[in-house]
Amino acid sequence: MKTERSTQVFNVAGYLILTLISLLCLLPFLLIISGSFTAETEILADGFKLIPNDFTLLAYKAVFSEPGQILKAYQVTILITLCGTLVGLFLTSMTGYVLSRKDFLYRNQLSFFIYFTTLFSGGLIPWYILIVRYLDLKDSYLSLVLPALVGAWNIILMKNFIKSIPESIVESAKIDGAGDFTIYRKLILPLSTPGLATIGLFMALAYWNDWFSANLFITSGDKYPLQFLLYKILASAAVLKTNIAGNLSADMKPPAETLKMAAAVVVTGPIIFLYPFVQRFFVKGLTIGAIKG
């Protein structure tokens, strides 16, 4: 079949714009990678460069000064990301489904109940007291998973995705005698894969990038997730550069600038492979027929 002229115009425009945007997004990352291999003094003197004059692995040596600890941190992060995302996705999609049902009388009130939490919060201190004193989760893996299990944003997005599934499907399933949970499990879940993939990706990213809860709740070194471990290394490097370095002198002064970049590479590396995996679920035209047949 011959491509229409309008389609050709469209495609050319699409390639051009997307290429331009990709370059804008890629370039800084290349700078980070090259920066992480550059000598500290070179960065300080000349700023960022695409190709370093003085190639060095010092920043990575500082990051991996204790390889056992980094590996353990990867493990913790992967574990938390997996558990949090799976359980969270289950709850989020179930809630999203219920809220999308037109015959669920209190859907608007309950949507508001959930959305309201994005507007108001009691602040850090009561939240911290709740988790540490009342739930007694200090230094427990649960403190990294539980507080971020479901979020209002994701629920509402999920509800929106599910809303695009034609109501007639639910109706006919009900006539066939299927219960609400069965409809959710057998029909809604398979039909909303792009939505699930999107929300799942968001959750995984949030867990992967979270260093703040570990900073507040985790006290044992062997429970540190990756992001927090790296933040800690960066923070110590920054402290060593300051006036109190007279008090806190270490034999090896880590290169503070390039360390930031090496840390970014170490963190981003593995999670970037998650994305192509998620892309597999972005297949157009998962139609009703495919499910029924």
């Binding site: 850090l124 201190i125 911290y128 007291i129 540490v132 004193r133 200090k138 260093w211 703040f212 900073n215 507040l216 006290t219 927090f228 933040y231 800690k232 960066l234 923070a235 110590s236 920054a238 402290v239």
Partner: peptide, 21 residues
């Protein structure tokens, strides 16, 4: 023996004292 770590230590110090741990 616990450490606050230098990451965001003021927030944590404040929390430790305020929360009554």
């Amino acid at each position: 023996l616990n450490f606050t770590s230098w990451t965001d230590w003021q927030t944590k110090y404040n929390l430790l004292l305020t929360s009554g741990e």
